[in-house]
Amino acid sequence: MAIPTLFLVSLIVFGLQKLLPGDPLLTMAGEERDPAVIEFLREKYRLNDPFYMQYLYWVRDVLTGDFGNSLRTGVPVSTLIAQKLPVTIQLAVMAMIFALLIGIPTGIMSAVKKGKAPDYAANAIALSGVSIPNFWLGIILIMVVSVQWRLLPASGYVPLTEDPIQSLRTMLMPSFVLATALGAYLMRHTRSAMLGVLSSDYIRTAKAKGLMPRVVVLKHALRNALMPIVTLTTLLFGELLAGAVLTEQVFTIPGFGKLIVDAVFTRDYAVVQGVVLCTAVGFIFMNLLADILYILINPRLRHPQ
């Protein structure tokens, strides 16, 4: 299933790119428009060939492990992906941890205290989390935390392997910003899943047995409510892997989002193709992970009838 999906994705993206108006070489040349050089590069990058031939060349190269070179900088696309992927993964993991820390406890609390003050408060927070634009929150955080208080670096990125503390510091604000919206989604889903489970018969039985409310909620209810939450978490994580354009832009994080947006704007076809392919693989992997997690959570799925 994975192979045809990837094939289809790459074909669609390739086709869409070719439909965009604009000429990569003209854009790249900018003020330095030398017709002879443009023609030379057009031949070199096979842009004179028909659309389907360009695509077939690309498929052939990818099958031999060659993702091509960036038109703009000449850097191999595989190198670019290798540079950006760790950044994007780190940002995605940190944002997801924040989102889970925010979303699940508040979701549980708001389900348990349904209709009471904590429920309304959690709902209000969730609504603002979804509504506040990331770039705005990002800029405000930079102004307050970095410029006024001088607590964290305003932007930039330090690899985890180079200086772990500094790396976490630079990623703290951007991952928090990303987590606000994700946390809000998670909270809403946790709440509704929990409400569904909490009203079921076995919970009433558990309560009637005299179990502690904490055990009833966390052990009996949460485990059954986790299925939709896991689905949502893996999907959101897959989205994070595609890059968070605005957040990356505001905090100047060299991840996938910035890479692909720049590549689209400069019509750097090979880079767009490579990144999309990589992101699609990420999504497929996350789907697989979701399936595995289902089995871990739900013993009923472990033994097929």
Partner: peptide, 16 residues
Amino acid sequence: PIPDATVRLANLRSGD
């Protein structure tokens, strides 16, 4: 490279 002019200035003001 910091593409956003406001963020660029914020980085200067924060000393980064």
